[in-house]
Design a binder for these strands. Structure first.
Lengths: 253, 253
DNA sequence: TCAGGAAAGTGAACGCTGTTAACCGTAAAC
DNA sequence: GTTTACGGTTAACAGCGTTCACTTTCCTGA
């Protein structure tokens, strides 16, 4: 749980921070138990009434947002830990470990996954609230790709070769990623970020939503297939057998 | 709209069929206008009260299911039409045309798309209701892949080389697809079906849900990239420039 | 043709949701 | 020590899916 003991804050502010933290924790506990998330459910479990929550969150949607943010943050710690089980000089192993952990977490916690990633189902365009919530996990994956690129320097599309819209998107990205550390002439790497994230997130979303033969989901073979398809893009074709073994080890764990 | 004039049905049954058709039509109109789908909204618009709808649908979820089915059916007609704009002996063009039409329709009708495809968000496992609703569109795409295979005979994984779970899944598929016409020794083709559907549906879902840079979505470049990545699997690498042109023509239409 | 019965629809009600308003005690702030 | 603002309450509104009891209507079978 997030620690709140900043002495620069007044006592009231600290207590307030503590309460909002308890709200988030309660909400997380609720939907971990399979209970439908609702203001009343959270309030009742905290020994309060529903309207009291409006002193802390402006609306139900805001509660969902802050809970989603926290879930993403905590889950990303798990992905990071999975990556850290491999040597720092083995970024490829770190990426596939984190990616597979992401996939396993999503399937084990479909409700949480839906909240974080499938949340903004057709909301008014122009609001990029969703992109903000997907900070931690996306940042982690892109950073791991960056580590691979630093080591192997796989070929990356030249910025000038990219279509105009994509070029603008990699030069001034909205996706949360440490982009400043990429030299301008290699910003094509951000396009690889997006490709990888699309592949990973795409197959995981389908698996979680159940839009696949249950036996294929259970076996994880489609996930393996996507990893295998994408590996060459990161110049990891040679290393594939070893990486696939890492993936399968986690799949059967 | 579905015609209901089967003379083998009694008058009452025909009237009943007409009413349920009107219910579905009203629901479709509702959420085409951006109105949140609800039993009361549908009933009121039809000049009825909400409980009356229970004479026709068992629950709200069943209403959603039947509406989703109808939406999928109608939309698939559009994909089919897009495919039919190309010659019968050009199945590759037909496939990319249908796939691109699918993508454009999904982005133009995100609410309908979510209803059909993102509907079963974490429902009790064991119910494969979702797989049933995704009949028409999935069937169309797989059939188009089959047409390509018949013409070009691209290499397909041998059934015995497939992992056990995948093997069972291609021999006795749950995914709705005309599978009987595939000789048993070439059932690895079903695995290609699944791969293709995963790629198409994965990227489109991400685009519709807004989990991508808006400029990239707008340009459709990620969709093009996915098509380009998957083409070699169908042995379409040589034909790619022409096919990409077909895609882009529809993107800017 | 007429009685019987099923089908279709209504109104009231239950329990649930998010949300707003009015109100009150208490604890922090000056 | 007074005042203010914060955190909490209860009551209420509108809307949702759903159920029950009741009525009307229209089709069917003898």
């Amino acid at each position: 749980m997030t620690q709140v003991d900043d002495p620069t804050l007044t006592r009231r502010e600290r207590q307030r921070e503590g309460t909002v933290a308890e709200i988030v924790a309660t909400a997380r506990a609720l939907l971990a138990e399979g209970v439908e998330l609702s203001l009343r459910a959270v309030a009742t479990r905290m020994g309060m009434t529903a309207p009291a929550l409006y002193r802390y969150v402006a609306s139900y949607q805001e509660l969902v947002d802050v809970v989603a943010f926290e879930i993403d943050r905590v889950a990303t710690e798990g992905f990071q830990a999975a990556a850290d089980q491999h040597a720092p000089d083995d970024p490829a192993a770190r990426l596939v470990a984190a990616g597979t952990e992401f996939r396993m977490w999503a399937l084990a916690n479909p409700r949480e996954f839906s909240l974080v990633f499938a949340n903004p189902v057709a909301e008014p365009m122009g609001h990029h609230r969703d992109l903000i919530t997907v900070q931690s996990s996306c940042c982690l994956m892109t950073d791991l790709i960056f580590e691979i690129w630093q080591q192997r320097r796989f070929p990356v599309p030249a910025v000038d070769d990219l279509p105009p819209d994509v070029r603008a998107s990699v030069l001034e990205p909205l996706i949360p990623a440490d982009v400043d550390k990429i030299p301008l002439e290699h910003r094509g790497l951000v396009w690889v970020y997006m490709q990888g994230w699309t592949q990973l997130y795409g197959v995981v979303t389908l698996e979680v939503m159940g839009h696949m033969d249950p036996r294929v989901i259970e076996s994880g073979e489609m996930f393996v297939d996507v990893v295998r398809r994408f590996a060459p893009t990161l110049d990891l074709a040679d290393d594939l057998p070893r990486l696939e073994a890492i993936v399968r080890a986690r799949l059967t764990a």
